[in-house]
Design a protein around this nucleic acid. Sequence first.
DNA 1: CATATGTCCTGAGAGC
DNA 2: TGCTCTCAGGACATAT
Length: 276
Amino acid sequence: MPELPEVETMCRGIRSIVGREIESLRTPRCRYRPIIIQPNLATIRRRLRGQVVTDVRRLGKRVVLHAGRWALILQPKMSGLVLLEQPPDLEHLRLRIEFAGPPACQLQFWDRRGLGTVELMAIDEIERRIVTGRLGPDALEISKDDFVQRLQSTRRSIKVALLDQKLLAGVGNLYASEMLHVARIAPQISSHQLSRRRLAKLYDAMHHILLAAIDHEGSTLADGTYRNALNDPGGYQQHHLVYARAGLNCKSCQRKEIQRIVQAQRSTFFCPRCQK
DNA sequence: CATATGTCCTGAGAGC
DNA sequence: TGCTCTCAGGACATAT
C-alpha cells in the first residue's frame, strides 16, 4: 500500500546513502518466487559496483537511486519496504545493497507479497521508459489549474480517477478516500461533473493530507506491514477519518456510520452525510 | 481513443 | 485443530 507519503518517507529515510559507494548487490536466499529484477542481477552488478550514489528521489510511488549514469528504481507496490535496518524477516528479503565502509551500511528491499520490482536503466531513459504515457504530474507538484483540467477530462468516478497514475501521480486507495472526505465530495460522482470550485477544494485537501501524512511518516495499517527506513511504523493512521472505518461513527459529523463501497475492485470509505 | 476487467502474490482472518 | 475461502490493492496486460 505504500503511496506518496510512505514512499516519500522511505526516500528521506535513506538519504544517508548519498555519497556512499556501492560495494555489492545480492538477492538473498528466499523461499518464494523471485521478484522481477530488470534487466538481470549480473548486469545490474556490473553497472553499479564501485559507483557512488549521487541522489535519492521519489518518482510517483517509486524510489529512485542515482549512481553514475544509472538509476536503480525500486517499486514497492503493495508490501515492499526500503530499509537501512534489519528487515522484519529474512525469508521475504528480496535485495540487499552493501555500501563500502567505514562504517558498513546496507540498503534492503523487503517485500512480503513479492509484487514489487527492481529496475535499472540509464538516468536519461527514465523519461521515455517510465514517465511518458504512464505518469502524470506529481500530486505535490501539480498546479491547481492543471489538477482541475485533468480531473474534468474523464467521465469516470472521482475516486477511480484519483487512482489513475497517468492523470496524477502519487495518490493511492487510502489517501483518495481521505481527501474526498475532507473536501466533502461523494466518491461516486463523475469526475467531469465536478465544478472548478469543488475540485479546488479537493486540491487543497490533497495537499493538506499528503503533507500531514508525510509529517507523520505515513500510515501503518492494522497488518503492521508498512515501516520507515529504520523499521518504525508511521503515525498517520491515527488521523484517518474514513479509511478502514466502515460501520464506525463518522469523526466529522458524529452522526452517520462510515460506509464501505467497492469501486473498480477497490474499497472506498466515505460518510454519506458529509459527502454529497 | 477511453474505460473496464483480470492478473500477479502472500498472509491474515473468518467460518466450519 | 486445520482446512478452505475471501480479501487486501499497485500497476500492467488484455478486453471491450
